Amino acid sequence: ELVLALYDYQEKSPREVTMKKGDILTLLNSTNKDWWKVEVNDRQGFVPASYVKKLD
């Protein structure tokens, strides 16, 4: 499943990933309501769920 980055996000820990507004990311896990695991540029990590939106 793919998600769209709604905002820029700068990683604050090694478990997170940086994304730019408009990026298309692969959603790996959305079981946590606050932090979703995504893959971007061959890196996996977490981003705030409120910063991304699922693409239909």
Results as ranks from 00 to 15, higher is better:
L4C: 08
S50N: 13
K37M: 15
R43F: 06
V52K: 01
L6R: 05
R43M: 06
S50V: 09
E1K: 12
F46D: 04
K20A: 09
A49M: 05
K54Q: 08
P14V: 10
Y9T: 01
G45L: 05
E1C: 13
A49Y: 03
T26P: 15
T26G: 09
F46P: 00
V40A: 14
G45F: 08
R43Q: 08
V38Y: 00
S30V: 07
W35Q: 03
I24C: 06
K21E: 08
G45S: 02
F46G: 01
W35F: 07
L25P: 01
R43T: 08
L2P: 06
I24E: 03
I24P: 02
N41L: 14
K12G: 08
K21A: 15
W36P: 01
T31L: 10
N29V: 09
L6Y: 04
R15D: 12
L28C: 06
Q10V: 14
N41A: 14
K37R: 11
P48N: 02
D42H: 13
D8T: 05
V38I: 08
K12R: 14
K54L: 14
K33Q: 12
Y9A: 00
V17K: 01
V38G: 01
E1W: 14
K53S: 11
T31D: 15
S50I: 10
K37N: 07
N29M: 09
D56H: 13
E39F: 08
K33T: 11
G22T: 02
D23F: 05
V47F: 00
M19W: 01
E16C: 06
L25H: 04
D34G: 08
A49S: 14
V40C: 10
Y51S: 11
D42K: 12
K21N: 05
W35H: 03
I24M: 07
K37P: 01
A49K: 06
Y7A: 11
P14D: 14
T18P: 07
Y7H: 11
T26K: 15
D42F: 11
R43E: 05
D23L: 06
Q44W: 08
T26E: 08
V17C: 09
L2W: 13
L55M: 10
K12P: 04
V17S: 02
N29Y: 07
V38H: 00
G22S: 03
T31Q: 13
W36D: 00
L4E: 12
V17R: 01
K53N: 06
L28W: 06
E16S: 06
L25Q: 00
K21T: 07
M19A: 03
V17M: 11
L27R: 01
E39H: 08
T26V: 15
L4A: 07
